[in-house]
Amino acid sequence: MLGEVLAHLCAKPNTIKYPFEPAVVEAGLRGKIKFVAEKCIGCKICVKDCPADAITITKIGDKRFECVFDLDKCIYCAQCVDSCPKKALSVTNEFELAQLDKHKLRFVFHAPDAPPTPPAPAAQPEPPVAKTA
């Protein structure tokens, strides 16, 4: 054990100074979900399969759907990605999602030709959230 610790004394540490150095994450990590509004057909299988009630899909016009993600509810299992028959949902490895302000955790993917709205941090009017029994 003595040799081992003395060898490590001179070696470069195995840990990194995380917030100051970027953390390397695996390409396969399930992070934030991405939604492509053009592909969505509004079948809502993702909403039904989501274990955490984190997705809301709203019809905002003819064949136009908007998706609201609650990042604080999401458990990042990506079941919605598997469930989606049209591959409108995909998974990214973005993982630094903590926020000081709770409202920023509600992430809205707008339909393509919807009128321009301020970016996500701005307070959105709370859409009705499906309540579970």
Partner: peptide, 11 residues
């Protein structure tokens, strides 16, 4: 610091 380095940490 020495203790940390011997344990392969930053300290």
């Amino acid at each position: 610091r020495m203790y940390a380095r011997m344990q392969h940490r930053q300290g």
